[in-house]
């Protein structure tokens, strides 16, 4: 089994936290993994991305080759499209929050973005912000998107939940539960499609 994931968004939206949780779950499952991420200057409101590779065999490159990514997991719709050259044209999935984060003057018209998503065979574009808020976890958009993507990750939801416990344990039970609820709510979206 081998799965290549790009997690993306804008600095501060939690894309890198999601990457850390998948990595932890994969490590608990005894899989090989490599995860490359953006640090430094570009985190200041710029686009951030993480290449996450999981496999039952040793992995060579830290970066995913173009055209081979299985899942693009994005907390922002335009950011998901930035990584299309990496997506596997036939079998790849895009799972993305549909709400734009507009911090640039030339953010494109949403109709253009929606039309582009329609061209992609496998995608889930949904209002993850709303689901996060409904679960009293306005900051949990990233967990909702991760929950929706979990259906295609090849990692059981309970493994991800354990990883959330390990990652957020220090912050107390309330935060752990809020994030687990967000994960489950996201998964329910994917299951209902």
């Amino acid at each position: 089994m081998k799965i290549d994931i790009i997690l993306c968004g804008v600095g501060g939206m939690g894309a890198l936290s999601s990457a850390a949780i998948i990595s932890q779950a994969a490590l608990d499952m005894g899989m090989y993994m490599k995860q490359s991420e953006t640090h430094g200057m570009s985190q200041r409101g710029g686009d951030v991305q993480s290449h996450l590779r999981l496999s039952d065999q040793p992995i060579a490159s830290d970066l995913i080759p173009q055209g081979q990514c299985d899942i693009i997991l994005s907390v922002e719709p335009m950011e998901a499209l930035r990584y299309l050259p990496f997506l596997n044209k036939e079998s790849g999935w895009i799972i993305s929050n549909e709400n734009p984060f507009v911090n640039i003057p030339n953010y494109p018209d949403m109709d253009l973005i929606l039309a582009e998503f329609k061209k992609i065979k496998n995608h889930i574009l949904f209002d993850a912000d709303k689901i996060a808020k409904e679960n009293n976890n306005a900051k949990g958009t990233n967990m909702v998107v991760l929950g929706a993507a979990s259906k295609y990750l090849g990692i059981d939801l309970d493994k991800l939940e354990n990883a959330v416990k390990e990652s957020f344990g220090k912050k107390g039970e309330d935060i752990v539960n809020a994030n687990i609820n967000a994960l489950r709510a996201g998964r329910a979206v994917a299951d209902s499609i």
Partner: peptide
């Protein structure tokens, strides 16, 4: 392998 092109409207951030 080749992927898809980045749509031209995707703006740098």
């Amino acid at each position: 392998a080749e992927g898809l092109d980045v749509p031209s409207f995707v703006a740098p951030r």
